[in-house]
Amino acid sequence: MPITVRSFDRLSDATSVLSSDRAARFIAGGTLVMRDLHEGDVSVSTLVRSMDRTFAEISTTGGRIEIGAGATMAKVLANRDLAFLHPVARHVGGPAIRQMATVGGNLFAPSPYGDFATALLALDATVSLASGFSPREVPLAEFLSHRDRPGNGVVSKVSFPRPPHDAFRFRKASRVRPKGASVIAIAAVLPQSGGRISGARVAYGAMAQTPIRVPAVERALEGKTLDPSGISTAVAVAAEGLSPPTDPIATSWYRSEVAPVHLRRLLLGETG
């Protein structure tokens, strides 16, 4: 099918086209959209691009961090104020993918992709949507639950509170190094008060169709210390109630088996 590419200076104009044309698809870095086109996706007749300057801007001033949806992983890596997120961005593909892959696109990446979205979920991010006349802000967890619904509009940015110093952790297990899709990705914000965890947020990637929070683990960490005995209950419930997907990277069973191993390593700060 012939494809028309339409580029817009304003996100609101891009949104209007997307809402009026069901065969229109937004393209950011294009690492997933172009793949679909090569595979013969005939549902797309129009590609919609944003040339809006603010679309890729990053703001780190103040307590709240804002990352434009069009910012690439390379742009995140180039920002020294986002050093705590560098291990996450560095785990998305290789150097060329990181030049192209955007933060906004990562929110839509099907499992086992979505490593950056997993981190954002742990960071309690909010998604800003430029939909029609009324921009909306939606918690990321809610957004992920209906991300494929038509008419969502264009994600303009994500924002989240800067995590307490040293509280953010990320770990990704893949079968190929240094680059590979996730067997499991784990992100956690582990605030401590008097040496004990208070209000942990833990998220998994590749353990469901979208990145998910892990409330059983979060509850088990409350008031605990980050040592082998303090984390033992959390590790025991690491995969409780989950039915991870089976895909070419790993089976559901394997993911459930290795989840406690990687959660323990993340919580104890172990490498390897």
């Binding site: 590419v5 580029s7 393209i27 294009g30 690492t31 172009m34 793949r35 090569h38 590609l47 691009r49 390379a74 150097p95 060329a96 993918i97 030049q99 192209m100």
Partner: peptide, 19 residues
């Protein structure tokens, strides 16, 4: 398909030409 764009590596097979 790798090429450099403004000195940075890009995968030209999945890059929309307009970009």
């Amino acid at each position: 398909c790798m090429v450099l764009i403004d000195g940075e590596p890009h995968l030209s097979c999945i890059l929309l030409a307009e970009m």
